[in-house]
Amino acid sequence: MVDPEPTPPGSAASRKLHFICGGSDSRQDVEGPKREKKRRLDLEDTEQKDSRAEFEAKYQEMYQQLGAGGCGAVFAGYRREDGLPVAIKHIAEGYVFCKHVDYNGRELSIEVAVMLRLQEETSGPLGTPALGAPVFLLDWYNLDKELILVHERPVPCKDLLNDIKDKGGSLPEEEAKIILKQLVDAAVDLQEKHIFHQDIKVENILIETGSDIPRVRLIDFGLSRFVKKGASYRRYYGTYQHVPPQWYSCNQNRPGPTTVWQMGVVLFETLHTGEDFMTKRFMEKSLTISETLSENCQDFLRLCLMEDPKQRPSLKQLRRHRWLK
């Protein structure tokens, strides 16, 4: 992650205390705000305890760690009521970098806000998801020292990074094509909903493995943002090794070209055994596209990984590429 943009604090209303010299009035004026502050802190403490108790009563967390990153850790668990498998994500208070104020004036983690926005269009929290759809957010608990997110946990599944490792360090081209087609469709859907994931990579792609055709599910929207058409940003959120080339040349980050670049990074790491993609190495030609791949696949990769963002196709153009047919 590069240079996280801090969330500006909310402005507090100014207060004035008028002191009357001597007598009991002075003590009352000073002690009144102290008592009010203590009552407020006691109320917040009670609410935090109630929220944690609610979480522990509703979900059983296990010791099995599913993943960890710079912002938190994810553990397996299940919902006590019906045994539904869940993934429980813990994010320390100081690592909720991106926030959003919703229609009701609530300040939410951007991950919560985005997941809620995406789920507004579904008929129920666990309807049949589209291919490439994000995992559903079931609950969230904003506690004193951490944010806890509870997501559905498809079973069986694994992230794409481990799927690649388990299959010898790369996937067959035809299998990679199935995954990329779903991934591009998911990226187009997010774009149409004005959501920029910002950190699409093999670690953030779940593969449901319970059927003949792998199903892609996107995870980890903790660095995402809501965007307007034509938006460009002066700060980059995401994995440093995958930063798009235009960041080095002009310090600009546009959602469409950056997401197309990330499609190329995912495909490169999926098809090249033992190669962790690094933008600088690719620009220096010490990482190259394998000539053993089909011509259409090589063309797809070259287009995604064009150094000039203006020469990359749009996501919708990428979806029509002949390799994905």
Rank of each mutant, 00 (worst) to 15 (best):
V2E: 12
P8E: 11
P8W: 08
A12W: 15
K16N: 02
F19M: 13
F19T: 07
G22N: 09
S24M: 09
S26A: 11
V30N: 00
V30A: 12
V30Q: 02
K34A: 10
R35T: 03
R35M: 13
R39Y: 01
L41N: 06
E44S: 10
E47A: 12
A53P: 00
E54Q: 09
Y59V: 09
Q60K: 15
M62R: 12
M62K: 14
L66Q: 02
G67D: 08
G67V: 05
G70D: 09
R79W: 11
L84R: 14
L84A: 08
L84G: 00
I91V: 14
A92F: 01
E93L: 14
G94K: 10
V96S: 02
C98Q: 15
K99N: 07
D102P: 04
L118R: 10
Q119I: 05
T122M: 07
A133Y: 10
V135E: 02
F136N: 14
L143E: 15
L143A: 12
L147Q: 12
L171P: 03
E174L: 14
K177W: 01
K181N: 14
D185P: 00
A186I: 13
V188T: 03
E192D: 15
I195E: 13
I195H: 13
H197E: 05
Q198A: 09
D199S: 05
I205S: 04
I207R: 04
E208G: 08
D212E: 15
G222V: 03
L223N: 06
S224I: 01
R235A: 07
Y237T: 09
H242M: 07
H242G: 03
V243Q: 07
V243H: 00
N253P: 00
N253C: 10
P255K: 10
G256L: 03
T258Y: 00
T258N: 11
T259S: 06
V260F: 01
W261K: 07
W261F: 06
G264N: 08
E269D: 13
T270E: 12
M278A: 08
K280C: 06
R281V: 04
I289N: 09
T292D: 06
C297S: 02
R302F: 03
Q311Y: 09
R319A: 11
R322W: 01
R322H: 11
